[in-house]
Design a protein around this nucleic acid. Sequence first.
DNA 1: GAGCAACGAGTCATAAAACACCCCTAATGT
DNA 2: ACATTAGGGGTGTTTTATGACTCGTTGCTC
Lengths: 114, 114
Amino acid sequence: MTRCSLSKSALPATVTENMVRIGERICLARKRRSISQAEMATRMFVTRKTLSRLENGETSVSLGVLLSALWVLGLERDILDLAAPEKDIVGLQMEKALLPKRIHTAKTIIEPDF
Amino acid sequence: MTRCSLSKSALPATVTENMVRIGERICLARKRRSISQAEMATRMFVTRKTLSRLENGETSVSLGVLLSALWVLGLERDILDLAAPEKDIVGLQMEKALLPKRIHTAKTIIEPDF
DNA sequence: GAGCAACGAGTCATAAAACACCCCTAATGT
DNA sequence: ACATTAGGGGTGTTTTATGACTCGTTGCTC
């Protein structure tokens, strides 16, 4: 995403939209906690401007900045919902589709290594 | 997060851990869908190496890359759970705490603007 | 309405993210 | 066993994110 970046031009609308949404949410969460940008940026170990860029939904901000923000806000738990394997319906189905249709009795027994 | 970055050195352990977790999940979701890094990177408009860095949990990867990945995987909906205002228990409580303890009858009536 | 803090935005310098190659090893399938 | 693909890791180059500083505006609070 840095650089002129292949994506920059071709980014689907939903990506930038989602980014704006995330920024707004972080901004809201911060205000609810009555913390200024300056204060929060300090706790995140970044500059106020970087936090500002995050809240403004710039896609070029690095992931560490987002995670730090969530951490400062006490919202890091929310990350556990991102691409959660057990909730990935499509993924689970496709995984199933990869399984062999019939199971042949193995000639050489595969043993777990322990 | 780019640069020597204030955070880089001081990042709390949970941040880097969460980043690793996200990377693993994206890797898993990709494999479930039987897509190679090369193929997925192309769809994301980034290089294979950048995707590799994301899957390896590097905090310096930009947010756009993550969002693009989720988009390609069809998991962009998961982002809606990030810092969701209605689920922010702490935030809602602190917001309440900001409300005045008593309501004085307004002398000048505040009207909604429409 | 005056003063002040918050915040967006601009500039400059610099470290580094992303690209574009490369090679190499280890799975994977035939 | 062999060919092929996947994916990690390295190098060099270009673009840019971040930090440090500043200015100007907005919007509180008194």
